[in-house]
Simulated scan of single mutants.
Amino acid sequence: MTTAPFELTADLHDALQGFLERIPFNKVLGIELGEMTTQKVLMYLPMKPELIGNFLHGILHGGVISSLLDVAGGAMALIGAFERHQHLSGAERLSKLSKLGTIDLRVDYLRPGRGQRFTAQAVLLRSGNKVAVVRTELHSDDGTLVAVGTGTYLCG
């Protein structure tokens, strides 16, 4: 028995977007959703004064960086879990996906977060029965690589 290739349909995309937009912390940070496909997730973060960590240099707070990497990584893990659980009924899938959470997140801060808009890109490294591993990069608006993260997510 073969399974049809997984597609991120418009309905599924809208459901994911609605889910992510309902998280209050994402709103506080000002995270904007970009592209979401089965290959990658893009999210954006406009700089604002409340997100500054070093007020002398006006750079993005490290906690904001790790949060953005985690949100983008979690979204990518969720898409991977949708693909793995596509054979389940809607209720069963929702039950499994409601358990999504971060198990571990490693962040390497490479350069100061200077800029007016930041881009996080997440790609799925592995999606297993219970755990997904995602790699995420954060770039400033001039293309500078600011930080990278590897997240492990419970998703099943």
Rank of each mutant, 00 (worst) to 15 (best):
F118K: 03
V131K: 08
C155L: 07
H85L: 15
A10Q: 12
S127W: 06
M36W: 07
T152L: 11
L94M: 14
G149P: 04
L60M: 02
R22V: 05
F25P: 05
V148C: 06
K48S: 11
K99E: 14
E32K: 12
K40T: 10
K40G: 07
G74W: 09
M1V: 12
P49T: 08
F6E: 01
G62E: 00
G18D: 13
L56A: 06
H85I: 03
A10D: 12
G18L: 04
G101A: 15
G149V: 04
E92P: 03
K27F: 01
F118R: 02
L97D: 00
S89R: 02
L69H: 04
R22W: 01
M1R: 09
V107L: 05
V71R: 02
T3S: 14
Y109I: 06
A10C: 03
F6Q: 02
E92L: 08
G115M: 07
S140I: 06
A81M: 01
T119A: 08
G58E: 03
L124E: 15
H13N: 13
V134F: 12
Y109K: 03
A15I: 11
L145G: 05
I103R: 05
L125M: 14
A4L: 11
E35S: 09
G143Y: 13
P49Q: 07
Q17V: 14
G101V: 05
L94R: 14
G62L: 00
T152Q: 12
V146L: 00
V107M: 05
A91R: 15
R93M: 15
P49M: 12
I59G: 02
D104S: 14
F19C: 10
K27N: 13
G128F: 01
P46D: 07
L51H: 03
L68D: 00
G30F: 01
T150I: 14
E50L: 11
Y44W: 09
L88Q: 11
G151T: 01
A75C: 14
E50G: 11
L154G: 09
L145D: 04
L145S: 05
L33C: 07
A120L: 02
L110G: 01
A147R: 05
L105Y: 04
L105V: 05
